[in-house]
């Protein structure tokens, strides 16, 4: 039995009277891909922001690698990275310069080799020396993913990582994530609004609604429990319930 790499207990976040996240508990095992599903405003992004130490929880605890995030922030974040469609990188720097800055920030050794590897892996050779401002949104997504992979994290938080990619590149990214998980035991917390992708990628899924976990299990278990045809139907049912 492996001890979890991430263990979240009774995690809550209130902004004034609004409970953005309301007492959620879950864990991720080494090498596991956990899908975080839920309609807009369900608390997915706030949860990820708390896991990254960007938002202070109102209550509850976050432990990674057996350490408390509140007291071991630096050691934990050295082994964690993230990518989101909604973040950017400094636009006036080239792709390569951005990667070098991140590599230095995390104190990587042999930076040229590591940058070369990641550029090849994500097929970015063509635009590695281009200023980030001039990239298409798909290329930009690849750069933020490269940033996330560059530091060889043990846990990766991915917030809609394939949202702006064409099907070919999105498929390659999914294959890469699976390969990284297989090769290095990478654990991933994954959010997406693409239900087929969620089913394909996730070992387990957590369904959030109004800041609470309303379902947890494999995609098939959740579909069966809610008596729907597929995950998309479950999503629509829960999303419409939360709008009432």
């Amino acid at each position: 039995m492996f001890s979890p790499v991430l263990d979240v207990t009774d995690l809550s976040k209130r902004f004034g009277d609004f409970p953005a996240v309301d007492g959620i508990s879950f864990s991720i095992k080494p090498g596991e891909i956990l899908g975080l599903l839920g309609p807009n405003g369900a608390g997915k992004t706030t949860t990820i922001q708390m896991l990254l130490g960007l938002v202070t929880p109102t209550a509850g605890s976050i432990r990674m690698f057996g350490m408390d995030l509140a007291t071991h922030r630096e050691t934990i974040l050295q082994q964690v990275n993230f990518s989101s469609t909604y973040i950017s990188m400094p636009q006036s720097l080239t792709v390569e310069e951005n990667l070098w800055v991140i590599a230095r920030l995390y104190g990587l050794l042999d930076i040229p080799r590591r940058v070369d590897e990641i550029v090849k892996k994500l097929e970015m050779e063509e635009f590695r020396t281009r200023v980030t401002r001039k990239l298409s949104s798909g290329q930009m997504t690849r750069v933020t993913l490269a940033k996330a992979f560059l530091t060889e994290p043990k846990i990766l938080f991915l917030d809609e990582p394939t949202a702006s990619l064409d099907p070919d590149i999105a498929g390659k990214i999914r294959a890469l994530l699976k390969e990284e998980r297989r090769a290095s035991g990478l654990s991933i917390l994954y959010t997406s609004h693409n239900m087929r992708e969620m089913e394909e990628m996730s070992d387990r899924i957590i369904f959030l609604q109004c800041g609470k976990i309303v379902a947890e299990g494999t995609a098939q278990e959740i579909v069966t429990r809610f008596g729907q045809a597929d995950l998309e139907e479950v999503f629509l049912k829960l999303a419409r319930e939360s709008q009432r």
Binding site: L54, R73, L77, S88, P90, L105
Partner: peptide, 18 residues
Amino acid sequence: LEELWARNLMNLFASPLK
């Protein structure tokens, strides 16, 4: 401000940077 304009604060403060 440069970090703010580049929307880079999240990248920085989600790293081990103090």
